[in-house]
């Protein structure tokens, strides 16, 4: 399989597979689930997840959703924790280059379909763009209520007290809501949803112009947020939601409001903070912004 992949040339789709790998019946099935998800924002729609040529946990849900929405004219971008150049992002990007022959990019603004693992790009998305999330565990109530039958019933009957028990436990144990990623949200005043393990810093961005689609391959669930639908992060009156980030500027591009990764640079306690969104950071540096270490670092 990998041999075949590597033999086929860049920008030229493989002939052995249907466009974007999945057969049309499967895509139709997934699109129906996506439409249902769009119609009922935040509701987890079951779908018949297929075996994909990659292990569960590597984005099989996201890949199936991307395959189902992709058209030949699309320009595709993949990020993993904000970065375009990690193994996972590169593999998935190449997978669609070869099976769909679509154009690919690292530029957020140029992409029409962006598949993401654990981040929302810094640059605001626009109408016409689609953001596809890879979701490991779609059920926000799972860790407190192991029964799927029971959690489905709780969603159906809007019994969401349990979600606050989790936040309560956070405060009781850590003095604040320590949940820092996969922070639960309520969609359109109805369904409580796991926004996938994005940092809670990204939660306010969930209300956006683009379509957001969530795919959980192993758990066989799809859910969606239509443009501009209302997404509220759960909290307590006396412990309001806070979109936290490291209290630094990016050491490369000097950005003050972006989400940062901490990078250990030596074994003597040296470290730096850099934008987790590599495209955003590179764009700023191209525009002449420089951070504390921007001049001395290799900007590749």
């Amino acid at each position: 399989m990998r041999d075949e992949l590597s033999r086929s040339g860049k920008g030229q789709a493989m002939e052995e597979y249907n466009f974007a790998y999945l057969d049309e019946q499967t895509k139709r099935m997934i699109r129906r689930a996506l439409l249902k998800g769009m119609a009922v924002p935040g509701y987890q729609v079951p779908f018949a997840s297929r075996e994909m040529p990659m292990p569960y946990g590597w984005g099989t849900g996201g890949v199936q959703v991307s395959a189902a929405v992709m058209v030949p004219e699309d320009c595709f971008k993949v990020i993993d924790q904000g970065a375009d150049d990690t193994t996972n992002a590169v593999s998935i990007r190449r997978f669609f280059e070869r099976t769909a022959g679509v154009a690919v990019t690292e530029r957020t603004g140029e992409a029409t379909v962006i598949q993401t693992r654990h981040r929302i790009p810094e640059q605001p998305l626009e109408e016409g763009q689609i953001l596809v999330y890879q979701v490991p565990i779609p059920e926000p109530l799972r860790f407190l209520e192991p029964s799927e039958v029971e959690t489905r019933k709780m969603h159906a009957l809007e019994e969401y007290g349990l979600m606050h028990v989790k936040l309560y436990e956070d405060i009781a144990r850590h003095g604040e809501i320590s949940t820092s990623y996969a922070y639960p949200v309520k969609v359109e005043g109805r369904y409580v949803m796991d926004p996938s393990p994005i940092p809670k810093f990204d939660n306010p961005k969930l209300r956006m112009a683009a379509i957001q689609l969530f795919g959980a391959g192993r758990e066989q669930r799809i859910y969606a947020l239509p443009p501009w639908c209302e997404v509220v992060s759960l909290d307590f009156e006396d412990y309001p939601f806070q979109a936290s980030r490291a209290d630094h500027d990016c050491d490369l591009c000097g950005a003050e409001g972006s989400y940062l990764d901490e990078v250990i640079t030596d074994d003597a306690g040296g470290r730096m903070f850099v934008c987790s969104d590599t495209d955003f950071c590179a764009g700023r540096r191209d525009a002449g912004h420089l951070g504390r270490l921007g001049a001395t670092e290799d900007v590749a």
Binding site: L144, G161, L162, H164, V165, Y168, E169, I171, F236
Partner: peptide, 27 residues
């Protein structure tokens, strides 16, 4: 009981289930 939730959380759950959203009051 929820064995993986603190005693306070166990008592608070029913309150939160009927809409209590003020941490200190619940506590």
């Amino acid at each position: 009981l929820r064995m993986n939730v603190s005693a306070g959380g166990n008592v608070g759950e029913r309150l939160m289930a009927v809409g209590a959203r003020h941490y200190r009051d619940i506590r």
